[in-house]
Design a protein around this nucleic acid. Structure first.
Lengths: 349, 349
DNA sequence: GCGCTTTCAGAAAGCGCTTTCTGATAAGGT
DNA sequence: ACCTTATCAGAAAGCGCTTTCTGAAAGCGC
């Protein structure tokens, strides 16, 4: 059914029918009702494409993240969806599965869809060629009136951003861990090139540095930003030659910490008796682990709500707005005082 | 930049430019290249709305689920996204947050978007008025050429479906639990009106019945389909008067089992020594629990891939296709032999 | 070499709306 | 009673594409 049919049925013109349905202009009450009645009767559903084309606007926003299956992104996406539902905005979801090219392609597709805003969640890639291409997509989009907002990313993009205080959070965590008595640390780190990783690492070092503690070479191992990446990194740390052994391990991401916990358990290393473990993000599931994970809590759902609000809110100037969100250290049972000196357990695996 | 500009720049007609870019018809190689060069030069991005309007087709599909933040839906959505990425399909995500009205509204919005297919994930609601309204949206959509596919739902919808074998899976689980020696069971059930719930419950009863075991009244408690719902239901079971005490508890959903595990832990009930616990779904996180959860494993990601494939595949007839997916009982450490008779632990809380 | 089919480019007609512009009618001022 | 000023409905011009239809040119058999 087209609007035309509705108009005919109601005995009014196409223009009047449009106005009656959208409330753009005053229409005599009687006609308004006639149009609505006709629309209901015919089961009229507007053609969003025609509307978008004619009005040169749409109410869809694009949400690009690495993988909705990942609890971190799922939590943020949940927040985005909640806010979107309230504002009657439709969300186009795009998962890049960590392929840079796919991200570029999605931005392009969302441009084609004339999305009102594009949300980029999670660290970008370090590849300069990738950065250039992304900017080449994003810049014209913004210039054409598109809005872009990001979570955990800022380099080279003139966009609004929700930035977790990775550095400060990690530093605070380091201090909390030091306060427990730890002096020897291991770090399960993510891909070097992610700013999230380097910020958290730097913050952690900074926090340790205040107490004159440093990370020994070999005690920082890198892995993929996944559960299995954490598992592998933990194994590497366990198998490595680093001496003295750390009494506490910091995984830059809760997801990695989950894998690490499994690796430790398998290796017979008790947490926290033999080794303390801390993560970052506070994804919902870490509360359910045994032991529950000490971490730096980020308000993930709220961050999702914020990023879409930021993108939808009218820009009040050319400046991009930055919303910093603090991380709160949550000490749970996965951390405790360091275990007495040399634990043979380390080698029992 | 419009196609018109590209055509002009390339010195060809609008029609030729369109054909060159879309490859719909043969275009002399030289012209084809000129058009592509012009498009690149101008940074041309087609207007998807205009394309959709003119060609009366789009390549977006709608994905409606209760909450992407929930690991169950996140896993399925992950599968959908993976398949979508391969087929160059854009996904519009809709979270209903378990509000029936919102689901209807979303279907309507997706109709307006002329989505190629609509995917409904998860149980529907029992409300007959809701069912009628949903059918009123879905039926005309299908008649107009729209494709609908569902996961875990079939009543009253002429749509393709991916149906987990809830009944058989639960029965198999019951048998496995019986084999461990259990005879007294408790069930943490979800909202009565969901078919998923009733199927799993019926299957479980059926499995028990084969050994002459029945569920005592009061040993089945209902809660919301969430972690906290599971927690509350577990507490209710714990506090309830049911005698004799169950030695094994079946949560109809892993998500609920997670909450139950926490409740048991808090109450000092050891799993599986004092009480065995089993779930259903095998969401990724249950492997990380202590103890890891016995469950009926469903290939969630594959189900997501299946449901979108089903929806996109050409219908070969008016019949709706049903893809049944089996659940596999995975015995993990959360279940063990029943604890010796009366455990005072039950009352210690 | 003539009429045939085949190949491929361009003109133009929409796709279903929104929105300006125009005009009719009613209300108000003097 | 006449002119000016609001109100509000309708006609029509797009929005940026796809696709049919038309026609020109080229290839082919005889």
């Amino acid at each position: 059914m087209t609007l035309d049919a509705v108009a005919r049925r109601a005995g009014v013109s196409l223009a009047t029918a449009s106005r009656a349905l959208n409330g753009t202009t005053r229409v005599r009450e009687e006609l308004r009702q006639r149009v609505h009645a006709a629309a209901d009767l015919l089961g009229y559903i507007p053609n969003a494409h025609a509307q978008a084309l004619a009005s040169a606007s749409s109410n869809t926003v694009g949400l690009i993240c690495h993988d909705v299956g990942d609890p971190y992104f799922a939590a943020i996406a949940g927040g985005v969806m909640r806010a979107a539902a309230e504002q009657d905005v439709l969300v186009m979801l795009a998962s890049t599965f960590r392929e840079p090219a796919r991200e570029i392609a999605y931005v392009s597709m969302l441009r084609a869809q004339r999305a009102r805003a594009i949300l980029l969640i999670g660290s970008g890639f370090q590849d300069p060629s990738w950065e250039r291409k992304l900017a080449a997509e994003v810049t014209p989009y913004i210039r054409a009136g598109g809005r872009v907002a990001v979570v955990s990313r800022h380099r080279s993009l003139r966009a609004d951003a929700v930035l977790p205080e990775n550095r400060a959070g990690a530093a605070a965590l380091a201090r909390a861990l030091l306060a427990l008595g730890h002096r020897e640390f291991g770090v399960l780190s993510g891909p070097r090139e992610l700013t999230t990783v380097s910020d958290r690492l730097a913050g952690f070092r900074e926090g340790l540095g205040e107490a004159g503690v440093t990370l020994r070479p070999g005690s920082v191992v890198h892995g993929a930003f996944t559960r299995d990446g954490g598992y592998a990194a933990a194994r590497e740390l366990l198998d490595g030659p680093a001496r003295p052994r750390p009494t506490c391990v910091f995984a830059v991401t809760d997801v990695m910490a989950v894998g690490a916990l499994a690796a430790f358990r398998e290796a017979g290393v008790r947490v926290p008796e033999d080794l303390s473990l801390a993560g970052f993000d506070d994804i919902p599931l870490v509360r359910e682990l045994t032991p529950p994970l000490t971490t730096v809590a980020l308000p993930l759902t709220a961050m999702g709500e914020s990023v879409i609000s930021l993108a939808l809110r009218e820009p009040r100037g050319a400046r991009s707005r930055v919303l910093r969100v603090g991380g709160e250290v949550v000490l749970r049972a996965s951390t405790g005082p360091p275990s007495p000196a040399t634990t043979p357990l380390w080698d029992s695996c």
